[in-house]
């Protein structure tokens, strides 16, 4: 089995998550080669063949050009698997490559199962297994496979393609400045969609206050404008690791878990016993947040 790993760089720097692809290939027991549009002056610590296109020419977001470059690498390497991270780069590019190769794509692999891959389904509540025949394009879930250490140096094979692009990249917009740094908080109490409406966020904030902690939130609560974005926990919010994390009415979607699973102690309050947050919570309280949380706050207040 041979895998072509599609590394990533951003703003000129190699992304550390690239080493998760190497970890994936090792766990699978596959031989690998890497493809990267990156800076030839900053090579990954990888002891294998590296198909490298210079980011100065190929740009960081030129999906049509990057697709062509990857197809060149596939032709030279003849891999069984073309492996992307399930990231804004990977999910954007993988389907285009799969169509051009005339092969199927498996998205967001979380593990191995019965000679194939295991995937999540139904927002993390269920699992799916797929078998593979022939060449496949896959994306792997961020964080699902431990990164391999950066070691060795690659044999570089430069790639170049004449520019084609149906999209024009007009630059990055930096993250909004944060008015609060959740990463330093020791106690975080987070509100999820299960709180029901904006006014009820007060109930969660009151518990945070009683515990001397900060208010966090899941994405829908932020998208709805109930809480500022600076409080959002998850892949597109902040990554936190407080000593105590209390998730109130949060289902436990992977993008939320990615931002808080390293917390010391996780208490979840959810009316759904099957909510995926239960998989990582130290204690799951099956209750209505609007009954349980005010009662707990009252008890703490004495």
């Amino acid at each position: 089995m041979k895998a072509l790993l599609i590394g990533e760089s951003r703003e000129g720097k190699l992304l550390e998550s690239t080493y998760e692809l190497v970890g994936f290939a090792r766990q699978l027991g596959a031989d690998s080669a890497m493809f990267l549009v990156g800076d030839p002056g900053r090579l990954p610590g990888y002891a294998g063949k590296l198909y490298l296109a210079d980011v100065a020419q190929a740009g960081e977001y030129q999906p049509d050009l990057h697709k062509k470059l990857i197809l060149d690498a596939v032709e030279k390497e003849n891999p069984d698997l073309v492996v992307f991270l399930h990231s804004s780069y990977g999910w954007d590019l993988a389907p285009r490559v799969a169509v051009r190769l005339g092969v199927g794509q498996v998205s967001e692999v979380i593990g191995f199962k019965e000679g194939g891959f295991e995937l999540g389904a139904c927002n993390g509540k269920m699992r799916r297994a797929v078998k593979l025949q022939g060449r496949v394009v896959v994306t792997i879930q961020a964080g699902a496979f431990a990164a391999a250490p950066a070691e060795g140096s690659p044999q570089v094979e430069p790639l170049k393609e004449s520019a084609v692009s149906l999209v024009e990249f007009a630059g990055y917009q930096p993250p909004e400045p944060k008015d609060i740094d959740l990463a330093r908080a020791e106690i975080i109490v987070s509100a999820g969609r299960g709180v029901g409406k904006k006014e009820n966020v007060e109930v969660i904030a009151a518990l945070a206050k009683a515990l001397g902690g900060e208010l966090g939130a899941s994405r829908p609560v932020v998208d709805a404008g109930w809480v500022e974005h600076s409080h959002q926990v998850g892949t597109t919010g902040q990554t936190v690791s407080p000593k105590l994390y209390i998730a109130c009415g949060i289902s436990g979607a992977i993008q939320h878990l990615a931002g808080m699973k390293k917390s010391g102690f996780i208490l979840a309050i959810n009316k759904d016993r099957e909510a995926p947050i239960g998989e990582i919570a130290d204690v799951l309280v099956v209750a209505d947040v609007l009954q349980f949380v005010p009662a707990l706050t009252a008890k703490i207040a004495g």
Binding site: R10, S88, V167, G171, Y172, P175, T235, T236
Partner: peptide, 10 residues
Amino acid sequence: LEGGLKGVVK
């Protein structure tokens, strides 16, 4: 994109 970063595309 990841980590609060956004990209503008035309």
